[in-house]
Amino acid sequence: MSVLVQEKPDTSVQATATPLLSVDGLKTYFKTSGGLFKAVDGVSFSVEAGKTLAIVGESGCGKSVTAMSIMRLVPEPPGETVAGSIRYAGDELIGKSRREIEDLRGAEISMIFQEPMTSLNPVARVGAQIAEGLKRHKGMTDAQARERAIEMLRLVRIPSPETRVDEFPHQMSGGMRQRVMIAIALACDPKLLIADEPTTALDVTIQAQILELLRSLQDKLKTAIILITHDLGVVAENAHRVVVMYAGRVVETAPVDAIFSDAQHPYTLGLLASVPRFDDDAERLLTIPGSVPHPAHMPAGCRFSPRCTLATSKCTAEEPPLRSVASGHEVACWLAPIEKHGS
């Protein structure tokens, strides 16, 4: 009898665990005078609670627009999310009213941006800028919010937070401002943090500090992170899963190890080849010639085909779907799976 009780079925294993965020077939277009820009054109991925998903790709491939679509921060007009589903904790966000989204922003899903120098309000004290969200979402009083703001500044390792809390952004360096942004983003204990190239604008040494800070905060707070970057070195150190985007689409998605040991898409291989490595005695077979196609003039077939050294006639005729090549590893390439490379 007691044996039976102990062997109670584990529901969390049986039921397919819902990811914290799942994006499915997301399409965000811009209507501009130069035509319809399909900046994000059918992107799907999911993020698990407490884990880091990296989104990588060259400039202009739609990483920021994807992030902004999740936050519903795409400027409308000219932008519009025309199709797709964004589920947060099982709850569909597309179709929610602006006010409902405002309740989620900062409280459940937060975002930090690429531009630390301009992302803070120049005329408000940093403490007030942290406190604002706390008062809005947690109903804190001014005094409570200030206490918590100081605590957050300490958490993001800003020295003497009690005095810094009353400073204005212009009194701080770029790295400090990005720490303040992180403090703002994490103040209300969101379950998901979207970090859009949080270190691109910073010095290399500061970059490493900020990323290390994000990692340790994730350990402490169990926040899931979508880390947008074009630096595969950053991916290797920080991410659990990787989504590789090209021209508004996902071309490959895999656990981080698989990306570095078993990349399948020629574009991913090209990105890897352009990262300087220490064990770089292997011949660099693939580099990426050419540039990202103009968003109003996408090539027929595989969008990468004009730049792909391996492209066949099928590649220029028909767009490859995302196909599974291994557990959790999907590739959109007609040539996949290719034999194991590297090592």
Partner: peptide, 26 residues
């Protein structure tokens, strides 16, 4: 159009608050 307005929105502030407290003051 400023970046800090995007930040204010990302905090989940009501649009009215964004306009009055963040945009107008500047």
């Amino acid at each position: 159009k400023a970046d800090f307005i995007r930040t204010a929105r990302a905090k989940g502030l009501r649009e009215k608050t964004v306009i009055i407290r963040h945009a107008l003051r500047n």
